[in-house]
C-alpha cells in the first residue's frame, strides 16, 4: 500500500467508492425523475422545463466536481502529497467531468436560456483546466504554480456555476433538505 493510500485510508475508513457495498448498490431504485410539468410551469414554457431537467444533470455534476476538486486542492496543498491526486476519488472526479462534457454537448438551450448554458459550459471548461493543472503536480518545480493556477480556475468555475443556480428549477448550490434549518415550516 502506498503511503498516500495509507494517508487517505486514515482519513476515510468507512466506505470507499470501490467498496463492495457500493458496487452492489446498483439495484437501488433510481433517483425519482423530476416532475417536468412543475418545472415547466415554474419556467413558463415546456421548452424551458425540458432544458432545466437536462441542465440539472450537468449542474449537479459540476457542483460535485467543484467541491471534490477544491477539497483535493486543499489536501494537496496542506499535506504536500501529490500522490493524493492519483487516488480513485480523483479518478471519480475525472470521470464525472467527462460525463459532464458529454451531457453538456447534448444540451440544447432555448434562446432565452442560451446564456445559462454558456455559463454551465464556462464552469465545465474551468473544471477541465483545474484537472489539467492537477496533472502538473507531478513536476516538483511546478507544484506551487500548478496549485495556484488550479485554485484560480476552481474559483472561476464556482463563480460561473453559482450564476446558473435556480432554486425554482431545482438547481441548488447547497442541499438543505436535511440541514439544520430544514425541519421548519416550508414557507
Amino acid at each position: 500500500m502506498s503511503e498516500a493510500r495509507a494517508l487517505f485510508d486514515r482519513l476515510v475508513t468507512v466506505h470507499r467508492p470501490d467498496c463492495e457495498l457500493l458496487a452492489s448498490a446498483g439495484s437501488f431504485a433510481a433517483t425519482p425523475a423530476i416532475d417536468q410539468g412543475t418545472l415547466a410551469r415554474d419556467l413558463e414554457s415546456d421548452a424551458a422545463g425540458s432544458y432545466a431537467v437536462a441542465a440539472r444533470v450537468v449542474f449537479e455534476d459540476l457542483r460535485r466536481i467543484v467541491g471534490q476538486l477544491a477539497g483535493f486542492l486543499i489536501l494537496a496543498r496542506l499535506t504536500r502529497r501529490r500522490e493524493l491526486l492519483d487516488l480513485p476519488e480523483m479518478d471519480a472526479a475525472r470521470q464525472r467531468w467527462q460525463k459532464c462534457v458529454a451531457a453538456l454537448s447534448a444540451l440544447t438551450a432555448p434562446s432565452p436560456l442560451a446564456e445559462h448554458r454558456h455559463r454551465l459550459e464556462a464552469a465545465t471548461i474551468c473544471c477541465g483546466e483545474v484537472l489539467a493543472h492537477i496533472e502538473k503536480l507531478g513536476r516538483p518545480d511546478r507544484t506551487e504554480e500548478a496549485l495556484d493556477q488550479a485554485g484560480d480556475r476552481i474559483k472561476e468555475a464556482y463563480r460561473a456555476l453559482q450564476t446558473t443556480a435556480s432554486e425554482k428549477a431545482g438547481l441548488a448550490m447547497v442541499d438543505f433538505s436535511h440541514a439544520c434549518c430544514s425541519c421548519g415550516p416550508q414557507h
Binding site: L11, V12, R16, P17, G67, G71, L75, E89, R96
Partner: peptide, 8 residues
C-alpha cells in the same frame, strides 16, 4: 477528506 469522498 470525507466530504471529498462523499462527493465522489
Amino acid at each position: 477528506a470525507k466530504w471529498v469522498w462523499a462527493m465522489s
